[in-house]
């Protein structure tokens, strides 16, 4: 299991209310494949309040991706929409939740970000 993935979800869990998701509610399950294994993370969003667990519950939106690709997303290096379009991420259920979830992902590490 990648360190980055765990720390991403841990940070998300401890980050408190996400104002950018104030109007989002629903559950997303990330199924991240890593070699032969699949690691599942359940993210529940309740009007901006986020809880993260490993519970195996039914989710409104299931996102399947390779663990490394997901870590790229978490670092802002991989654009999730483009990845969905090229089939590198599979989405089942309500895709709008993934569109909203992208709001809290970082942007690409670019020099203009440091300048601002």
């Amino acid at each position: 299991m990648g360190e980055t993935t765990s720390s991403f979800f841990e940070a998300l869990s401890g980050a408190g209310r996400q104002p950018l998701l104030a109007h989002a509610s629903g559950t997303l399950r990330f199924e991240l494949s890593d070699g032969g294994e699949t690691h599942r993370w359940l993210v529940s969003v309740d009007r901006g309040e986020i809880t993260v667990s490993r519970a195996r519950r039914k989710a409104d939106c299931v996102i399947r991706a390779d663990r490394r690709l997901f870590e790229g997303m978490a670092r802002g290096e991989v654009n999730a929409t483009a990845a969905v379009l090229r089939g590198a991420i599979e989405v089942e259920g309500d895709p709008q939740l993934l569109v909203l979830f992208q709001r809290i992902l970082p942007g690409p590490p670019a020099k203009s970000e440091a300048q601002r």
């Binding site: 950018l20 802002g76 654009n79 709008q96 569109v99 909203l100 992208q102 709001r103 809290i104 992902l105 970082p106 942007g107 690409p108 670019a110 203009s112 970000e113 601002r116």
Partner: peptide
């Protein structure tokens, strides 16, 4: 609104 920008991304 749902797709409003949230970050700095020079490519986009």
């Amino acid at each position: 609104g749902i797709r409003q920008g949230t970050r700095i991304d020079d490519f986009r």
